[in-house]
Amino acid sequence: MNGDRTGVLPSQHLRRLISEGAIRAERPVSEAQIQPASLDLRLGRRAWRLRASFLPGAGLAGASAAAATVAARLPDFAMHEMDLTEGAVFERGCVYLCELAESLALPPDVSAAANAKSTSGRLDLFVRLIADGAAEFDRTPEGYAGPLFAEISPRSFSVLARSGARLNQIRLRRGDSRLTEAEAQALDPEGRGDARQGRAFSVDLRPAGSDVAGWRARRHTGLIDLEKTGGYAARDFWEPLPAESAGRLILDPGAFYILASRENLRTPPDCAAEMTPFSAGVGEFRVHYAGFFDPGFGCAEAGGEGARAVLEVRCHEIPFVLEHGQDMGRLVYERMLARPDKLYGAGGVGSHYQGQGLKLAKQFA
């Protein structure tokens, strides 16, 4: 890698780190796991039902490194151990901790950030990365060396998961990958406000050519096997939301919705992106679970002509009205360390959501 450059590590650099042992795995890492700007992580053999979520490094200032590991803290919170080799059910409303097949021994100038994969988010699976010593989820510091774990909490559907399932992913960075103001402005010349804050996008509640504005998860459904692509009828698990001329949707507290952005979005080959909330002041709903957008998403170079962002929305304590065209989030771009040797949606990359509109997870027909 070019030592004087900063940015998100592309696919070819991820392969190099794997070959050098900076990314390790109990089973060989497959090419299918290597995405243009991220690496899919696999569930390992063991999982534990927890009585509460926890962070191993929280509140342990001054404690030894050994005391702040997941293994040291797990006996305080684990209820029972589960073997994932033949599959196990993760029940809705419960919290689980899973060991991951991958571990890290990062170079001193490389850090990692994690996010749920798109399919996990669309199934309302709350998935977060935990590392030894962590005082926050989904982050490892520069030079982190140690195991990785995933906290998983199904919110709408109980799921059947097996060892090897890929529910979250990591993105590796060297230094500060944020774009300069000039770089950000060139990507979104008509953007609103500070271009470095990302491109704003809004919700589409009056979709052209469709009478369905979104989907709401049904309660008390059957089990979803994560390995069954196209194996379930959508309406057994989802209630379609009719598009109304007023372009208005009242969110129910505790309900989960799949909606789509009004705008077509693109991530150029030299950039990665992450979806972030539009404003912390809009506190009545959560906008997304899965936020990584790989280089090539929605781009002509990878066979796309723009693609909608799918919005995974959960309402909190009180009913809340969404209006057609209401701002929901921003797509914040980051500089790639180099252009990836494969792009999202291009040949050979398993990209289920290139050119998407309003689309449910791949498990639904």
Rank of each mutant, 00 (worst) to 15 (best):
R218Q: 11
C98Q: 03
G247L: 03
A65R: 14
C271S: 13
P240K: 03
G350V: 11
A309Q: 06
M328K: 01
R15M: 13
S202W: 00
A72N: 11
F126L: 11
R139E: 09
A88C: 10
P36G: 06
Y289Q: 13
R314I: 10
A65T: 13
V282E: 13
G214R: 01
G222L: 04
G350E: 14
R266I: 11
M82W: 05
H220I: 02
S351W: 05
G133S: 09
V321E: 15
S158N: 12
C98M: 08
E31N: 13
L311N: 01
D252Q: 15
N115Q: 11
M1G: 15
W215E: 02
R235H: 12
A233C: 07
L9N: 05
R16S: 15
F77S: 04
I258G: 03
F54G: 05
R314T: 14
L43Q: 04
S153L: 09
A184P: 03
G44Q: 07
G164S: 09
E284H: 12
R171W: 05
M79Y: 00
G325D: 04
I318A: 13
V110N: 03
E244G: 09
F297E: 03
G57N: 09
W238I: 00
V282M: 15
G347Q: 12
P108G: 09
W215K: 01
V8A: 11
L60D: 09
L241C: 07
E190L: 12
R49P: 02
G121M: 07
E91Q: 13
G350K: 12
L17H: 14
R262Q: 07
A255D: 08
L39W: 09
P28T: 09
P340I: 08
E183Q: 14
R162S: 13
A182V: 11
H80D: 13
L50K: 05
C94Q: 15
W238S: 05
A61S: 14
L74G: 02
V282Y: 10
V282F: 12
T6P: 05
G231M: 02
A52Y: 05
G164Q: 04
L322P: 02
L331T: 04
L251C: 08
E227Q: 14
A365G: 10
G303V: 06
A213R: 01
L343A: 01
A66E: 15
H352T: 08
R173F: 14
S53V: 12
A300T: 12
D294W: 02
L265D: 00
R330N: 02
G175A: 05
P147W: 02
G3P: 13
G231R: 01
Q12L: 03
G247V: 03
R166Y: 02
F149R: 00
V310E: 04
A58E: 15
R162T: 12
D327Y: 03
R248H: 06
S153P: 03
Q169V: 07
L251Q: 00
A25H: 01
I224Y: 04
D188E: 13
G59V: 00
G350S: 13
R15L: 15
M328T: 03
L360M: 07
L179K: 01
G329M: 04
A365H: 08
E26V: 13
V110F: 09
Y353R: 02
E183K: 06
P207G: 05
A114T: 06
L97R: 00
T140E: 06
G193H: 01
A22V: 06
F137W: 09
P141L: 11
A63C: 12
L322M: 10
P240C: 05
E263N: 08
S111W: 12
G345L: 06
R286D: 12
D124Q: 10
A32H: 09
K342S: 07
L343W: 08
A68T: 14
